[in-house]
Design a protein around this nucleic acid. Structure first.
Length: 752
DNA sequence: GACCTGCTGCGGGATG
């Protein structure tokens, strides 16, 4: 393990410390005293003045477990305690039900002190508490975006009574809402809340350390980001202990029946050996990258425990596992005993309280710095304890690898590049989202449901007036309305006075239970053993009585298939087979990571955190890079194909592939570029020159070559022309870049 | 060779 860095932060002066504390409500100070806190944390102290004095929005960013919740709520509750007005005072929104339950447990004693009601409001929360709140709304509500949506649609009559006097809206895990459809959805809901109250509610955002605070502030206050008061916690962890370990895969052996190829299988065995030896005896997190690999690893680790005659300490955690199994594991981690290592997907990245772990490991080089940071934040959370991170990369054995791409050992290089960017504190800024039309369509239906009917101009102003949905222009909005009212959709109707109302299909769609969420869920098989519900697998898996499964860290045999309820009954069996989970695309990468990879090839330093294998692979990779002169040559013949090294992120690489395809080439993408199959470098250079010089070859023109534009939940109702237009808007900024890149590549060609 | 997230209201019957 190598020590990576040390950072320190200065403690604030003593006078500042007392100053804020004294302004808190007397009952809150009493509570703090009884909790045995000797002082407030830095971030908590520094949040008091901005919340008590200012009238604007506040963005609090700090690492996990820095006490952000209290930082927000101590002054907020001080402010709203004893509120005379009827109605709720604080709305807290979180992306997970589990997080709401955690926060409820933490805030309940405090609220009881202040005689202020607090209620959980999500699908699994007790109905009786909700009913009580509806009768006498007061205090704090903790709610999900979907439940908030449901209130707008189903309880429109009571909105004013509930939300008319809300003073604060707290958004937890704000970084989770900065991109993606769910963030756009919540953005619209918060605007609608302001509409109900007839004024702007104060917003308080809680976030992990974010790469682009400006984007977060812009999300909170569109067009007025500078008014958001920012309170930043000290840099995450003081020290990181780091190691990158490389394991070698043998050459691929073609075995169409094997679920994992044999080389990969051996490499995963080697990772499992090391994990088993190193992580036993403590609490750890191992991020495996996919649900399938989680199951593959847990199966191997259980096998090793059985062989060694020891109690198994390794358990799976991913989105397809049942709530019960996940909570059981979370409980073990939180209790801290017995020793437990969770093998997980991204499910354990968010702020669910799992206590502190000794180390974090992951399989595969990072593709996103945001994710890497988030994972690292889970380790070394106590003062003076370093965070520990291990990265396992799997690489082709250099003695047998023949393919140029394999011999560049990109995983080792990417791991080094990612660590450099971690030190440089780079985090990807949020990108443009392809789901704008779906969210606008959803909100049109929701608002009409809420109000009974509405004029088009008012709808446009309320939904697209400000914020990220303003990217949809008035003309496009009208086109969307027309399509929604068309005979094909029948979602809307228009009264003679112009008022827009729900059509027949609109009535149906807004009545369904699955209307509230902005994301889609596919149909799945439910797996049930004699004791409990294990979880789900996609219906795409072929199943039958007698089929085998490896799932939830055990091996099973299917004993009953109920096609009507989509339920599989299973029993323990000695053999198993990994199920298939869907997922056709890989996690996108940012330009910066690819350009850093290129620097790693061109530099000469060999980091001390690499193990022996990784060091050797890095040096061999650099030798290959230099031998092919990849610093100056980016297009070269390889077999009957031509390799094009772009060294750009996913957005540009995809656009580039579309451009080459439009020129008649057959392309497939890889991590650092594109392979043009059955094409000579001469053919590629001709295509590149056309892309560089043909004035008619614009992004608008290329858009006609794009397939599967319908990605988001309600896109089936959106005119294809509109989706194509939004694609053009998202990619327009890359047009000049595309031409420049094509021109550069065309002159760096070789036929070696 | 990705991942994750969420869900109303009503009626009927059992229970304390």
């Amino acid at each position: 393990m190598a020590h990576l860095r040390r950072t320190t932060s200065l403690p604030p002066s003593g006078s500042e410390r007392r100053d804020g504390y004294d302004r808190l409500h007397v009952e809150i100070r009493r509570w703090i005293h009884e909790e045995g806190w000797s002082e407030l944390r830095d971030i908590q102290e520094r949040t008091i003045h901005p919340i008590l004095d200012g009238g604007g929005h506040v963005l609090i960013s700090a690492s996990t477990a820095a006490g952000k919740t209290e930082a927000a709520f101590l002054p907020i509750l001080t402010q709203v305690a004893g509120a005379e007005e009827a109605g709720l005072s604080v709305v807290y929104v979180a992306p997970l039900k589990a997080l709401i339950n955690d926060q409820y447990r933490r805030l309940l004693p405090l609220c009881e002190r202040l005689e202020m009601p607090i209620v959980r409001w999500h699908g699994d929360a007790p109905q009786a508490d909700k009913t009580r709140t509806l009768r006498n709304p007061r205090g704090v509500v903790l709610i999900t975006p979907e439940s908030l949506e449901a209130m707008f649609v189903r309880r429109s009559g009571g909105l004013g009574r509930l939300f008319g006097n809300v003073r604060f809206v707290v958004v937890d895990e704000l970084h989770a809402f900065l991109s993606g459809p769910r963030g756009l959805h919540l953005h619209s809901l918060l605007n609608r809340l302001d509409g109900v109250a007839g004024r702007t509610m104060r917003r308080v955002g809680l976030s992990a350390t974010i790469g682009d605070p400006q984007a977060a502030a812009e999300w909170m206050a569109p067009g007025k980001a500078e008014t958001v008061v920012r309170v930043d916690g000290a840099a995450g962890s003081p020290e990181i202990l780091l190691q990158v370990r490389a394991v070698l895969e043998a050459h691929d052996v073609d075995d169409p029946d094997a679920l994992e190829d044999i080389g990969a299988r051996r490499a995963l065995d080697l990772v499992a050996d090391h994990v088993f030896q190193t992580l036993r005896g403590d609490n750890n997190l191992l991020f495996a990258g996919s649900r399938r690999r989680v199951e593959a690893m847990v199966d191997r680790l259980r096998q090793r425990s059985d062989d060694a005659g020891t109690t198994n300490e390794f358990f799976p955690h991913h989105g397809s596992l049942s709530r019960e199994l996940r909570e059981e594991l979370e409980g073990r981690l939180k209790a801290g005993t017995p020793p437990t290592t969770a093998v997980a997907t991204t499910t354990l990245e968010l702020g669910i309280d799992i206590g502190s772990v000794k180390s974090v490991a992951q399989i595969g080089a990072p593709r996103s710095l945001a994710g890497l940071r988030q994972r690292l934040g889970r380790s070394g959370r106590r003062k003076g304890v370093p965070a520990v991170l291990r990265i396992y990369v799997r690489e082709r054995d250099p003695t047998t690898a023949s393919d140029l791409i394999d011999r560049l050992h990109m995983d080792v290089v990417r791991a080094v590049a990612a660590i450099r960017l971690l030190v440089a504190k780079f985090v990807e800024p949020p990108g443009a989202d392809p789901s704008i039309a779906t969210v606008v369509l959803h909100q049109i239906l929701s608002i009409i449901c809420e109000r009974g009917g509405e004029k088009a101009s008012r709808l446009y102003a309320d939904i697209c007036g400000k914020g990220p949905l303003a990217a949809l222009g008035k003309g496009e909005f009208v086109a969307l309305l027309r399509a929604m009212a068309g005979a094909d959709s029948n979602l809307l109707e228009q009264a003679p006075d112009g008022t827009i109302m729900l059509g027949e299909a609109g009535e149906v769609i807004t009545t369904g239970r699955d209307f509230y969420a902005i994301f889609e869920t596919d149909q799945e098989w439910k797996l049930v053993s004699e004791q409990s519900t294990l979880g789900t697998i996609p219906v795409a898996n072929s199943v039958g009585v007698g089929s085998l499964l490896a799932f939830a860290g055990r091996r099973w045999r299917i004993v009953d298939v109920d096609d009507r309820t989509k339920t599989l009954r299973v029993e323990i069996h000695r053999a198993g087979k990994l199920p298939m989970f869907e997922g056709l695309v890989s996690e996108p990468m940012h330009d910066r990571l690819l350009s850093e990879m290129r620097s790693v090839y061109e530099d000469v330093d060999v980091p001390g955190y690499l193990d022996g294998n990784a060091k050797a692979l890095l040096q061999q990779a650099r030798t290959v890079y230099r031998a092919h002169d990849l610093a100056s040559i980016q297009v070269l013949a390889a077999g009957g194909d031509t390799q094009i090294f772009l060294w750009r992120g996913t957005a540009m690489a995809s656009l580039f592939a579309i451009a080459l395809t439009s020129q008649g080439l057959r392309c497939s993408g890889h991590d650092v570029g594109v392979t043009a199959t059955n094409a000579t470098p001469e053919m590629v250079i001709a295509a590149l020159q056309r892309i560089a010089d043909d004035p008619k070859l614009t992004v608008s023109e290329l858009a006609n070559a794009v397939g599967n534009l319908r990605e988001a939940k309600f896109d089936r109702f959106v005119p294809e022309e509109l989706l194509r237009h939004l694609w053009i808007v998202r990619n327009r900024g890359l047009e000049l870049d595309l031409r420049t890149l094509a021109r550069e590549l065309a002159v760096k060609i070789t036929t070696s």
